[in-house]
Write a protein that binds this DNA or RNA. Structure first.
Length: 434
DNA sequence: TCTGGGGTCCTAGGACCC
DNA sequence: TCTGGGGTCCTAGGACCC
């Protein structure tokens, strides 16, 4: 058929490269003592498990579990625990992506540890070998092990990746190209392992007798659309082999920027929270300047610990800024004005945050008649601050209101060195003992 | 003692317009 | 008593992702 030939020629092939236990693997790269040990990485404040090495998974540690609940497993199985070191992980991520970009420029960096490659045009028989080549190169050049799934749609590439992760047979690479193997793969994939099916849809689908990905592909379009909307229908079409999710190599500007933290210990003093909120505001402004935008709307929120029995208070306030800005001083002063309105004495605050939205490009800001700020001068100041921060380190210069006490700071008791981003943390090797 | 942080997209419903 | 038709814009909330 004419149509068939057309589709054959157009058919794309995607490879999803996904780092194995990424954060845990980063810790292992620079610390050979960790090899073959169970390693876990904790969220900020040393709260929950956010990464587990293969050995840690085998030990029965679950994703997202609070660390204090699994103290006994950690002790019994000699699990090596680390506080999240995002400076290290971010830098390692860049290295991995750099290696991938040597293979193709058609690269979509999807998250810190995942990228899609458009590898259309290769012969089907070459795909596995090519995947192995990518895998070996990334491992050799960065020390990070990856798994690769290959298919005609991104969602199927995800399925392939998932299976390759679990099955030793695949040696880290699986391609799902022919109908038979796709069907087998879908049947063995629990429906909640499908990319786009979360907790709610999982419950819903199961209560309707759909337990695996294959069954999901057999549901009717109208039923899917009714209950899972257009996004759900796209997922199902992708599982059927029909590409619906676009491949996008350009990094889109963010539409919202948020900086928020839980405090290491609960805070009751206004001054402490003001320090924290000012620091978050400053961080937001940095991120905003980084993408050359100005924000028109600013939100501040505070909350008490939702798990404790103490009185609870959750609140947020939003302002429309008179002139859209990315100036740290302005964003800090609006943030503390909002905090002043929000703050109520007597509560034990656990978390606060600053959110910026309604962005416009720096060059298109509407001036106000009553604006009495010298914006050119302020912009020069900001770019000087940014330059100092990027060469000499963050917070070398900062606003006084951000404070120095940092009583709100994170708990990070098991932080590893920043092996790749701080001179003083570089590894020393004693040649006499090698 | 101890439970993360930062995003995206879509939909329904209300307000408002002619 | 009856009570159109068609549209836009905005917001809150829900779902998902890593």
């Amino acid at each position: 058929m004419h149509g068939d030939i057309y589709i054959k020629q157009m058919e794309k092939v995607f490879a999803l490269v996904d780092c194995n236990s990424f954060y845990a693997s980063c810790e292992k790269v620079f610390n050979p003592k960790l090899e073959s040990k169970a390693v876990v990485v904790l969220s900020n404040n040393d709260g929950c498990i956010i990464a587990r090495s293969e050995e840690a998974k085998t030990a029965g540690i679950k994703m997202g579990e609070p660390a204090f609940k699994i103290r006994d497993i950690i002790e019994k199985k000699n699990v090596q625990v680390f506080s999240a070191n995002f400076a290290l992980y971010g830098d390692m991520s860049q290295r991995v992506m750099n290696v991938l970009s040597k293979f193709t420029t058609d690269l979509e960096i999807y998250s810190i540890d995942e990228a899609f490659l458009d590898i259309s045009g290769l012969k089907e028989s070459e795909l596995l070998l090519y995947g192995q080549q990518i895998r070996n190169t990334v491992l050799q050049w960065t020390g990070i092990p990856v798994t690769i799934g290959i298919a005609h749609t991104k969602t199927l590439a995800k399925v392939a990746n998932h299976i390759a992760k679990k099955s030793g047979k695949c040696q880290g690479v699986l391609s799902l190209m022919d109908e038979k193997s796709i069907e087998k793969a879908l049947e063995s994939t629990p429906v909640d392992d499908v990319w786009g099916v979360g907790r709610q849809y999982n419950t819903f689908l199961r209560s309707n007798g759909i337990y695996n990905a294959l069954a999901l592909t057999k549901a009717s379009d109208s039923w899917i659309k009714k209950h899972m909307h257009i996004v759900g229908l796209r997922t199902v079409e992708e599982l059927r082999g029909q590409p619906c999710i676009s491949f996008d190599m350009t990094v889109a500007d963010k539409q919202a920027i948020c900086t928020s933290r839980s405090f290491g210990t609960p805070m009751m003093d206004y001054a402490d929270i003001e320090e924290a909120v000012s620091t978050f505001a400053s961080r937001c402004a940095e991120k905003l300047r980084h993408q050359n935008s100005c924000a028109g709307v600013l939100t501040v929120f505070v909350m008490t610990n939702r798990f404790s029995k103490d009185p609870k208070y959750v609140n947020g306030k939003t302002v429309q800024l008179p002139v859209a800005t990315n100036n740290t001083a302005e964003i800090i002063s609006h943030s503390s004005a909002l905090l002043k309105l929000l703050f109520k004495k007597g509560y034990k605050y656990k978390k606060a945050g600053v959110i910026l939205t309604e962005f416009i490009p720096e060059g298109e800001v509407q001036q106000s008649l009553w604006d009495n700020l010298n914006r050119d001068k302020q912009n020069q100041l900001m770019s000087t601050v940014d330059k100092i921060s990027s060469t000499m380190g963050r917070d070398v210069v900062k606003f006084a209101i951000q404070g120095t006490r940092r009583r709100w700071k994170l708990r990070q008791e098991k932080l590893s060195p920043c092996y790749t981003t701080k001179w003083q943390d570089l590894l020393n090797i004693d040649m006499d003992r090698v």
